[in-house]
Design a protein around this nucleic acid. Structure first.
Length: 878
DNA sequence: GTGTTCACG
DNA sequence: ACGTACGTGAACACG
C-alpha cells in the first residue's frame, strides 16, 4: 500500500480560516477564529485522507509574504491584521501540543518548503496531498501530488482538489505552464508584476500556444496583436523576473522528517488543555469522546464457524441491545450479517460454508423476535425481520431525523460524528462509487472493517439518541409513531399498486397525437422551429422575436411560468397553444412514459415511501412519486383510470376533510372556528359569511372562493402578498381580508403569533405530538429569510400535526386489517388520503375500519371527518 | 449539478 | 426597497 503524506501551508490556511470564520474570542479576549477554522480544516483533511504522515510548513518571520525581498513590488498587500497576528504563535503551540510536525527554515518560503517536500516525497513513491489556500501551489500538482484548496462557503468548508488534469481542466494549462501563465499575467496579491497589457485571457492564449515564456520569446515574431507584441518585447526583463518570482523552488535544502511527521494520536492531554483555554467546546467534546480507531478495531471479529455463529446469535438474543447491519447484494440476498454489542464487541458473519443464507436468515428472524435490534434504515431489512412489533427495534436514522429534520440526508457516519464525536470513513472515500457488495468481492478486509465501524456506531449511538429524544419530548413520537410506521410503509411498498399497461400506453399515445399537432401549430404561429421545452429559447421567441410584453423575472432570463403566460394569452394566440403543449408534455413525460418504466411483476408499481425527507413530518414518495398523480385538471385526472385493483378487489379511498384547518381549530382553541365546525361542514361558506358580514345563505360564490383562499393562506403562514397573488387582488384588499379574518377568529391570530414568538424564543416549533421543526431562518438579518421563518413557524405545527395524525391512522388501519385477518391492504398514502385495495367481500368492513381509525386517530376539539369513495379504478374511487 | 417548471396535498 | 405564500419529486435544459 502506498504511503500517504499530507502537507499543509500553515500561514495560508490560517489566513483562509481567519477570513472565512466569523470572529471568535475567548473570555480573555484572544481572537481564536483562525485557529478554530484551521483545526476544522485539519480534522476534515485527516478524516478524509487518513494519511501516514503530516507536516505543516510556516514562513519563518510571520508575516513574511512571498518575495517580499523584492521591495520595488511591495506595498500592494495589506499588513496582517493584529487579530490574526496574535493567533499565529498560539496555532503553533496547538500543533506542537498535538505532536504535529512543523517546518520552517530561515530564508525559505513556506511555498518552497512545501514544493520541495512534495516533489521529494513523490519521488520516494508517496502519495502527496498539499493543502493550501493559495492557488500558486497549483504548479506543484502532478498525478501523484494532489493540491487541495479549501473554500469556506456559508459556514461549510469544501475542498477543491487538483491533480494535473484538474489544473488543465480549470486553467487550460498544465501545472508547469501555470508558472509561465503567472509570469505573463502577474499577480498583484503576490507582488508579481507580469507583463503590462497581458491579462488572464491573453496569457492563457499565449501559453496554450507556446507553453513557456522562453519559447514565446523565441517565436515573438508570430504574435499578431501589435500592442501585446510591443509590450512583450519591451518587458522581457519583467517577464523573466516574474517567472522567477512565480516559480516555487522544489530543490530547497529541506527534508521530510518521517519520524516526526508520522501520524499518531493527536488527542493529547496538552492539546486538550490548550483547546480548553481557547474555549473550543465543540472540538473539546471530540477529544473527550474520542476513542482511537485502533482501540475499537481490537474488538472486531470475523465469524466463519458454525459453533461461533451459534454462540453469537445466542448471545445477541440476551443482550441489552444488538447493533445490526446486513450486507445485501443487488438481488437483495444476504452476503453477511454484522452484529455489535453495547460493550463494543463486534462480529462480522460472512455467508460461507455452513453459514448459508438460509441459516443466517433463520437466525436473524429468530433474533428479531426476541432480541433488541438497533440499526439504520430498518425498513430496508424487513425482508429478514419480523414486523409484528417494533417495540424492541430502534432505528438511529429515524431518531436523528426527529432530532433534526432539516438535513438533506442521514448517514450513520453523520450520526456517529454528531452524537458520539466519533469520526468514521465515508463510503466514497474508501470504495468510490462502487456498491458495497461489489467492493466486498474485491477488498473484503476493508469492507468488513468499514461495516464493523458502522454497526459499532449504531449500537453506541442508540442510548445517546434515546436520551436526546427523551430530553426533547420526542421519545413517544419515536416509539409510538415513527417506529411502528416503518412496518406499514414496508408493507405498502411491497404490495405496490396495479396499473393497466395497455391503458397507460393508449393514454400516452393520445397525448402524443395532440402534442404533435400543437407543435406544428406553435412553429407556424411563431414563424420558426425551436425547442418549446426550453424556457430560454421560449423566452427569446416570445419576448424578443414576438416582442410580447413582460420583462425579466428569473436570474437566468425571462420567466415563462404558466401564470406569466396566462396574462399574455390575450396578446398572442400562440401562448394558449404553448400552455396546452406544456400541460400535455408534462403529462406524457412524467406520467404516461414516466410511470411505465416502473411497472413490475403482476403489472404492479412499487413506490418507495421516505420517512426522513420532509421538514414537517410528512412522508414523501419516490421512484415513482405516487403522491402527485394529476387530480385538479380533468385530462390529467384521467390517468387515475390506469390505476386499478387486483381481480376480485376494488379501491376504497378515504381522505380527511380539511384536516389542517381542523387541526388549527383545535390547536388554537379558537371558539368561533370550533363552533363553526360544530354547526356545519361548509367551513369556507361560514368563514365567508362571518368575514364579509353576509348572511350564510347569501354568500356569493366569489365570497366563498375568497374565504377559502384565506383559509388556505392561514395554514401556509399568511402574508398579504401571497394572498393578493393567489386571488389576483391588490395587497391592500388582501390585508383587509386578513384583518377581517383575524377579527372573526381572534384565537387564530393569538395562536399564530404565539407560534412565531415561541420559535423566536426557542428556535423551533412543535406539533401536538411533540415533533420539532427548527426555524433557524428566524434569526436571519435578511428580511426575506426572516419572513420565511415566520411563515414556517405558523405552518409547521399545523402541517406537522396533520402528518402525525394520518401516520397514527395508518398504523391503526394497518393493524386492524391484520388483526381481523383481512386480505385488503393499505397501499397508498397521499398526505390526507389513504387508499385501500379492498377485497369485494370486505368492502363494508374496510369502510368501517377506515371510518373508525381515521376519525379516531386523534381526539380534537372538532370532529375529524373523512370522505370515502369506492371504485374499480383510482379515478372512480376519488 | 443547478434552475425552471409543474404535478400533488 | 426588499420579493414570498407551506410541504414535496420528476423532467428537462443548460453550463
Amino acid at each position: 500500500m502506498m504511503e500517504k503524506l499530507v502537507l499543509i501551508d500553515g500561514h495560508s490556511i490560517l489566513n483562509r480560516a481567519f477570513y472565512g470564520v466569523p470572529d471568535l474570542t475567548n473570555s480573555s479576549g484572544l481572537h481564536t477564529n483562525a485557529i478554530y477554522g484551521f483545526l476544522n480544516i485539519l480534522f476534515k483533511i485527516l478524516e478524509e485522507e487518513k494519511p501516514d504522515y503530516l507536516t505543516v510548513a510556516f514562513d519563518v518571520h510571520a508575516p513574511t509574504f512571498r518575495h517580499e525581498i523584492y521591495k520595488e513590488y511591495k506595498g500592494t498587500r495589506k499588513p496582517m491584521p493584529e487579530e490574526l497576528r496574535e493567533q499565529v504563535p498560539v496555532m503553533k503551540e496547538v500543533l506542537s501540543a498535538m505532536g504535529i510536525a512543523t517546518v520552517e527554515k530561515t530564508g525559505l518560503e513556506a511555498d518552497d518548503i512545501l514544493g520541495t517536500l512534495a516533489k521529494k516525497s513523490e519521488k520516494q513513491g508517496m502519495a502527496v496531498s498539499l493543502v493550501s489556500g493559495d492557488r500558486d501551489l497549483l504548479q506543484i500538482a502532478t498525478d501523484g501530488i494532489k493540491v487541495r484548496i479549501p473554500k469556506t462557503k456559508g459556514g461549510k468548508t469544501e475542498i477543491e482538489d487538483y491533480y494535473t488534469s484538474d489544473v488543465v481542466a480549470r486553467y487550460q494549462v498544465t501545472p508547469t505552464e501555470f508558472i509561465d501563465l503567472k509570469a505573463l499575467m502577474g499577480d498583484t496579491a503576490d507582488n508579481i508584476p507580469g507583463v503590462p497589457k497581458v491579462g488572464e485571457k491573453t496569457a492563457t492564449e499565449l501559453i496554450r500556444t507556446y507553453h513557456s515564456v522562453e519559447n514565446l520569446y523565441d517565436h515573438i515574431d508570430e504574435i499578431t496583436k501589435k500592442a501585446v507584441k510591443e509590450s512583450l518585447i519591451n518587458n522581457r526583463k519583467l517577464a523573466d523576473l516574474s517567472k522567477d518570482l512565480a516559480t516555487i523552488r522544489t530543490d530547497s535544502d529541506v527534508e521530510l522528517d518521517k519520524d516526526k511527521a508520522r501520524i499518531h494520536n493527536f488527542y493529547t492531554e496538552d492539546a486538550y488543555k490548550i483547546l480548553k483555554k481557547l474555549e473550543f467546546k465543540n472540538l473539546l467534546s471530540r477529544f473527550e469522546k474520542r476513542v482511537s480507531h485502533d482501540e475499537i478495531t481490537e474488538k472486531f471479529h470475523t465469524v466463519t464457524d458454525l459453533a461461533e455463529a451459534e454462540n453469537l446469535f445466542e448471545k445477541a438474543g440476551k443482550e441489552e441491545a444488538t447493533g445490526l447491519y446486513l450486507l445485501l447484494d443487488e438481488k437483495r440476498s444476504l452476503l453477511a450479517v454484522c452484529l455489535s454489542f453495547p460493550d463494543g464487541e463486534t462480529f462480522f458473519c460472512r455467508r460461507e460454508g455452513f453459514l448459508t443464507e438460509d441459516y443466517l436468515a433463520d437466525k436473524l428472524r429468530k433474533l428479531s423476535e426476541t432480541g433488541k435490534i438497533v440499526c439504520a434504515n430498518i425498513k430496508e431489512y424487513y425482508d429478514f425481520l419480523q414486523t409484528d412489533n417494533t417495540d424492541h427495534y430502534f432505528d438511529i436514522i429515524l431518531a436523528a431525523y426527529l432530532l433534526n429534520p432539516l438535513k438533506n440526508d442521514y448517514t450513520i457516519q453523520d450520526v456517529a460524528n454528531e452524537h458520539l464525536g466519533l469520526m468514521l470513513q465515508e463510503k466514497t472515500e474508501m470504495f468510490g462509487k462502487k456498491s458495497l457488495s461489489a467492493a466486498y468481492a474485491e477488498m473484503e478486509e476493508e469492507v468488513i472493517s468499514y461495516i464493523s465501524f458502522l454497526v459499532y456506531a449504531c449500537v453506541k449511538a442508540a442510548p445517546v439518541l434515546k436520551k436526546k429524544l427523551e430530553e426533547t419530548g420526542m421519545d413517544r413520537l419515536m416509539k409510538e409513531i415513527e417506529m411502528p410506521l416503518t412496518c406499514v410503509l414496508y408493507d405498502m411498498e411491497k404490495e405496490g399498486i396495479r396499473v393497466n399497461p395497455e391503458k397507460l400506453k393508449a393514454y400516452g399515445d393520445t397525448l402524443a397525437g395532440r402534442i404533435k399537432e400543437l407543435e406544428q401549430e406553435i412553429y407556424r404561429k411563431a414563424g420558426c422551429e425551436f425547442n418549446i421545452n426550453s424556457p430560454k429559447q421560449l423566452g427569446e421567441i416570445l419576448f424578443e422575436r414576438m416582442k410580447l410584453p413582460g420583462g425579466k423575472k428569473t436570474k437566468t432570463g425571462y420567466s415563462t411560468a404558466a401564470d406569466v403566460l396566462e396574462k399574455l394569452s390575450g396578446e398572442a394566440p400562440v401562448v394558449a397553444d404553448i400552455l396546452e403543449y406544456r400541460g400535455l408534455t408534462k403529462l406524457k413525460s412524467t406520467y404516461a412514459d414516466g410511470l411505465a418504466v416502473y411497472i413490475g411483476e403482476e403489472d404492479r408499481i412499487h413506490s418507495t415511501f421516505n420517512q426522513t425527507i420532509t421538514a414537517t413530518g410528512r412522508i414523501s414518495s419516490t421512484e415513482p412519486n405516487l403522491q402527485n398523480i394529476p387530480m385538479r385538471m380533468e385530462l390529467g385526472r384521467q390517468i387515475r383510470k390506469v390505476f386499478i385493483p387486483r381481480d376480485g378487489y376494488l379501491f376504497t379511498d378515504a381522505d380527511y376533510s380539511q384536516i389542517e384547518l381542523r387541526v388549527l381549530a383545535h390547536m388554537s382553541g379558537d371558539k368561533q372556528l370550533i363552533e363553526a365546525y360544530r354547526t356545519d361542514a361548509d367551513i369556507h361558506r361560514i368563514t365567508a359569511s362571518k368575514v364579509f358580514h353576509t348572511p350564510f345563505e347569501e354568500v356569493t360564490d366569489l365570497q366563498r372562493r375568497n374565504a377559502k383562499a384565506v383559509n388556505f393562506g392561514i395554514v401556509y403562514g399568511i402574508s398579504s402578498f401571497g394572498l393578493s397573488q393567489d386571488l389576483s387582488i391588490s395587497r391592500k384588499e388582501a390585508t383587509e381580508y386578513i384583518e377581517q379574518y383575524f377579527a372573526t377568529y381572534p384565537g387564530i391570530k393569538a395562536f399564530l403569533d404565539g407560534a412565531v414568538a415561541h420559535a423566536k424564543e426557542n428556535g423551533y416549533v412543535t406539533t401536538m405530538y411533540g415533533r420539532r421543526r427548527p426555524v433557524p431562518e428566524l434569526s436571519s438579518s435578511n428580511f426575506m429569510q426572516r419572513s420565511f421563518g415566520e411563515r414556517v413557524a405558523m405552518n409547521s405545527p399545523i402541517q406537522g400535526t396533520a402528518a402525525d395524525i394520518i401516520k397514527i391512522a395508518m398504523i391503526r388501519v394497518h393493524q386492524r386489517l391484520k388483526d381481523e385477518k383481512l386480505s385488503s391492504k393499505l397501499i397508498l398514502q397521499v398526505h390526507d388520503e389513504l387508499l385501500i385495495e379492498t377485497k369485494e367481500e370486505e368492502k363494508d368492513k374496510v369502510r368501517e375500519i377506515l371510518e373508525e381509525e381515521m376519525k379516531g386517530a386523534a381526539k380534537l376539539a372538532v370532529e375529524l371527518e373523512i370522505d370515502l369513495h369506492t371504485g374499480y379504478d383510482w379515478y372512480e374511487a376519488k
